[in-house]
Nucleic acid binder design. Structure first.
Lengths: 201, 201, 201, 201
DNA sequence: CATGAATGAGTGTTCATTCAT
DNA sequence: GATGAATGAACACTCATTCAT
C-alpha cells in the first residue's frame, strides 16, 4: 500500500508538472491559473494542492526537475576522456533537443524562469545554480582542452565557458521567436568555432 | 499651444516610461501595478491612462523605445568602413553599458520582454524585429568582413551573426544573475574570438 | 453482533467528540477542519462521516452531551433538602471544575457555542434549553429558600436565578481570558453573597 | 481637500463598520463574507480594502471602537463622588442599552468577540483589556464604597468587581437568547443586591 | 488636465463532503 | 468498515480600468 501510494504520488506529481509546463509554455506563469493546470491535467483545482503547496511551488518544482536533468548531462559529459568531445556532446544535449515537442516546451518555460528569477529569490537561486554548475564544468573542460592543445592557451577558460553558455542561451531564445532557425547549422557553426580556437588550426 | 502640449506629452510619456522601467525591473511586469508606476512617477493612477491606453501599451512603448535606440546603434555601425570595427563597436554598444544604472534596468526589462514575447503577439513582433534587424546587419557585416579577409570564408554569415547575437543575449542573462561577471574580460574574449576566426590571424 | 456494533459505535462517537472538543477548543469551530478532527482522533476524514452526517452534527452532539451532563447535576441538586445547599452544590458543579483539563476545554467550547447559537437555530435551541432548565431549577430553589427564610422574600426568584446563572457564565468567560482568576475566591464570594441576601444574616 | 478626504475617510470607515456589525450580528464572523459587508454598505468588495487591510482588521476595528466607547463610560463614572451611584450608572451603561437596535447588534457582535478571542491573539488582547479596565475601575469603586460604609468590608473588592462584571456579561448572553428577558427587573435586582451587601442594610 | 475613490471580474487557496478501492 | 484521494463551490483579496469631481 505505501508502495502504491508512493508510485501514485510520483505519477501525479509528474502529471501535474507536465500539465503545468504545457500551460506555462502557452500562456506564461502569470496568465496560467491553477484551474488551467488542473484542467490540463484532468484534475480538479483542489487536487493540485495535495501535491504542491502553492502555484509557486509548482514553478519551483519544474525548475528543480530541469536542473536535475541538466546535471545528469554534465555528469555524463565529464566521463568523456576527450574534452572537446565532451564540449560538443554538451552542446548537443543543451541545444540538440530544441526541436522535439517536450523539449521545446521545456525551453519556453526555461525562458520564463529567467524572468521569474529576477523577482523570485528561490527561482533565482535555482537558475543561478543552473548556470554556475555548467559554467564550472565548462571551465574545467576548456582548461583540459587547452592542456591537450585543443584550444588556444591564451583564452581565459572562465570567459570561454561563459561564451559557450551564452551561445546556448542565445540560441534557445532565437529558436523561441523563430522556430525556423536551423539547429544543425548552428551546431555546425559551434563546432567550426571550436576548431577555429584550437591551436592546430 | 499644440507645441507646448506636445512637449508636455512627450515629457510625461518619458516620465512614465522611466518609472515603469524602474518598477518592472524591480518586480516584473505582473507584480507591478499601475499604482506602483504612478507612485514611482509621482502621478495618480488615472493620469497614466491619459498617456497610455493600458498597462500592455506601457510595456509595448518600452519595447518600441528600446528598439528605436538599438536601431540607431546599428545605423551608426553600418557607417563604419571597417566591418570588424563595426562588429566590435556594436559589441560595445550592446554589452558595454551593462554596468551603468539605467542600462542595467533596461536589460532586466529586456529579459522580461523575452518572456512576454512568448505570450503577447505584439511584443513578440517587436522582440523579433529587435533580433532580426541586428541579425541582418551582422550578416552583412560578416559577409563584408569575409570579403576583406577578416573572417574565414568557410563560416556561414547567418550562423556567425546568430552566434554573435547569442553571445550578447547570453551575457545579458549571466550579468543579470551574477553582477560580478566581468564585462571587460567578456568583451576581450569576444575580440579574441573574432581574431581567431579571421583567416589572416 | 448488534451489541458489539453498538458499543463500537458509542466508543467511536465518544472518541470523535473528544477529538473534536480538543480541536475546537484550540482553534474554534470554523478554523477546525474535519481533517484536523480526524487526525486528532487517529481516524481518516471519511470515517468521521460514518458516525456523524456533517461537521455541524458533531458540534451539535457536543452540545447535547454537555447538556445531558448538566441536567444530571440539576437532578442531583434537586434531591437536596436544603435549598441553599443545593444552590451551592450547583455553583460548585458549574464553576468548580473550571481548572481541570477536560472541563477547561469543555468550557472553551461552551463559549464557542454561545456564538454559534446566534446563527445556528439548532444550537440556539440547545443553548437556550441549557439556560432555561437551570433557570427554572434555580427559580424553584430560590423560592424554596425564601420559604425557609434563607433568602430575603423581597427578591424576585426569576431575577435571582438569572443573576446566579450570570455569575457562572461571566466567570467562565473571565477564566477563559485570564487563567489566573481565582476560582476558590470567586466561589467564596458567591457564598458570601448568598449569606448577604438571606434575611437571617 | 485633505479635510474633505479625511471626513470622507472617517465616514466610510463608520459606514463599513456599521454594515459589518449588521452582517456579523446576523451571520457570525465566519459566515459573513466581504461581499456581504460590501453589499450591506452599498459598496463594492474592492472598496472595503481601501479602508481596511483585511477582514480581520474590520473585526478588530469593531472591537477597538467598542472598547473606546466603554472606556468613556468608565471615565464618566469615575467622576461621580458617590461610588454606589457610579456603580449603578455603569450598570445602566453596560446593560441599559440592550434593548435599543444598534446596541443589541453591538452586543451580539460582542459575544462573537468572546469566541474569537479564544483563537485570535489580537482580539484576545482587546477583549482582555475590555474586561481588565472595568475590573480595575470596579475594584476601586468597591473599595471606595467600603470606605464609605456602602458595601460590607468583609467582601474582597476584586471578587465583587468580578461578580459585577459577570452579572453584566451573563445578562448580555441571556438577552441574546431570550429577548424577553426583562432588563428593568434585572437592573432592579442588581440594585437590590447592592443594597443587600451594604453594611447599613 | 489631474485625481483617486470606486468598481468588479478574476485568482490562489481552502475544506466539507463523497466514493472507489 | 475504513481509507484518503478527489471534488468543486466558496472565499478573501487584488488590480486594471473608469469616471465624477
Amino acid at each position: 500500500m505505501p508502495k502504491v501510494s508512493e508510485a501514485h504520488l510520483a505519477s501525479r506529481h509528474a502529471q501535474i508538472l507536465r500539465a503545468a509546463i504545457a500551460c506555462f509554455a502557452r500562456n506564461g506563469f502569470h496568465r496560467t491559473t491553477i484551474n488551467d493546470i488542473a484542467a490540463e491535467a484532468g484534475l480538479s483545482p483542489g487536487a493540485i494542492y495535495k501535491y504542491f503547496a502553492s502555484k509557486d511551488e509548482v514553478i519551483e518544482a519544474i525548475s528543480v526537475e530541469r536542473h536535475r536533468r541538466e546535471r545528469e548531462w554534465l555528469k555524463e559529459a565529464t566521463k568523456a576522456t576527450n574534452p572537446r568531445g565532451a564540449i560538443l556532446a554538451l552542446a548537443h544535449s543543451f541545444i540538440g533537443g530544441l526541436s522535439e515537442g517536450d523539449t521545446a516546451l521545456d525551453r519556453r518555460v526555461g525562458i520564463l524562469m529567467w524572468s521569474e528569477a529576477l523577482r523570485n529569490p528561490r527561482i533565482r537561486r535555482l537558475v543561478r545554480e543552473g548556470v554556475d554548475e555548467p559554467l564550472s564544468v565548462f571551465r574545467d573542460l576548456v582548461a583540459d582542452a587547452q592542456q591537450q592543445g585543443q584550444i588556444g592557451r591564451d583564452f581565459d577558460p572562465e570567459v570561454v565557458a561563459r561564451m559557450m553558455i551564452a551561445l546556448f542561451q542565445g540560441f534557445v531564445l532565437q529558436r523561441a521567436w523563430d522556430p525556423q532557425a536551423d539547429i544543425e547549422q548552428y551546431l555546425n557553426g559551434v563546432e567550426q568555432l571550436l576548431r577555429a580556437v584550437s591551436e592546430t588550426q
